[in-house]
Simulated scan of single mutants.
Amino acid sequence: MSGNKRPVAGAPLRMVTVGGLCLSSLYRVDEIPPVPGKALASGFFQVADGMALSAGFAFLRLGGQATVCARIGDDELGASIRRGLAGEGLDTSGLHSVPAAKTSQAAIIVDRRGDRLVVPFHDERVDKSPDWLPVGDIAQASILHCDARWVEGAEHAMRTARKFGVPTMIDGDVAPLEVLQRLVPLADYAVFSDAGLLLYAGVNDVETALRRVAAEHAGHVGASCGAEGYFWIEEGALQHVRAPRVEVVDTLSAGDVFHGALALALLEGRSMTAAARFACAAASLKCTRFGGRLGCPLRDEVEALVLATYGAA
């Protein structure tokens, strides 16, 4: 595990997450119609959502603990989200209510193939300052995970984590290039989506992009490529773990579940190959279930799919 800090034997593993948070309304349809159009939803679900939050939830569901750091509005929706996340077992002490601001929301339409259309709303009055982030929680974390949706918070948190030797992981999903350029160099684990990696590297091939980024990055560089699995560079060679084949229902939060599972497996001392298998299995199982991050599987389910797909270690 990168970073100077090592988990204490027997101590619970804790992820601190920093990123965006919103209430997502999920609508399941047969086809996403062209605009203008109308489609009758066959399913509906609401869930507090966000990439870093979802990674933390997966980390929790698979056996760890998680503290969520994010900004919410000073409104009833924000209060409701706080209560709901606490009820799920997440530590919500890192949620910061911004006075006079509205909590973010998103409408997400998911078709029968698992593809989706996302329409978010973020209140421009939400303060971007990261000064309130809990230094003590970050310093005591087993790992810090950040997404790129709140660049000021992610940068501040990762610089703080570095001071205390806490390993850091960035979700390198699609974001403005200048945002990724600020955050990726601060991460011990730069775990991209394939689209985010290609954007960051400025090329159209995953292997070329991984080699280009890895040549300039001291830590781990990898890319989660959906059904194609996980690719990374190790000692100058391209490594790959294939994803289990599943019937896809909903891909929302699959990449986030991958991040949370990968971080937990690495903290438990698994090799990168074993950790990637565990993470691919977790993300694949999530894709078989409608409901975003709440479709994250339990640990026994993941271990069973790892064994069925890859065999015994």
Rank of each mutant, 00 (worst) to 15 (best):
V203M: 02
A161Q: 05
Y27V: 12
G291W: 08
R6P: 01
D205H: 01
Y200S: 01
A261P: 10
M51A: 10
I143T: 10
A187G: 14
D131F: 14
G89Q: 06
V246W: 06
L305P: 04
E207N: 14
A276H: 03
P185R: 07
F231C: 06
C296L: 07
C69Q: 00
D49R: 02
V213H: 09
F290H: 11
N4K: 15
G222A: 08
S271W: 11
S93F: 07
P244C: 08
P176W: 10
E228N: 13
A313Y: 12
A283F: 07
D91A: 05
G73Y: 00
Y27Q: 14
C225T: 14
L252T: 14
L144P: 00
V213N: 02
S97G: 11
Q105V: 15
K163N: 12
D171K: 03
R277Q: 13
G78R: 06
R82L: 05
R116V: 01
T251R: 15
A313G: 09
I109T: 15
G19H: 02
L210C: 10
A41G: 10
T288M: 12
T208F: 00
L186C: 11
L298Q: 11
L186I: 08
P167Y: 06
L60M: 04
T251Y: 00
V213F: 10
D171N: 15
R212Q: 14
K163V: 15
L40I: 09
V29Y: 12
V203H: 02
E155I: 01
S284K: 07
L285C: 12
A215C: 08
G94K: 00
E247W: 02
D111V: 03
S24D: 14
T67K: 08
A161N: 04
Y189R: 01
A52H: 08
H220T: 11
A9V: 05
A254L: 14
V119H: 15
G89W: 05
S224H: 01
V174E: 14
A161G: 04
D74I: 04
A161C: 04
S193H: 10
W232T: 02
D147L: 10
L144E: 00
F258A: 03
K102H: 15
F59K: 04
R82I: 08
R212G: 13
S284Q: 07
L267H: 11
L77C: 05
L252D: 05
P185S: 01
D111H: 12
R270F: 01
A265H: 03
A195Y: 01
L238Q: 10
D111Q: 11
K286V: 12
E31D: 11
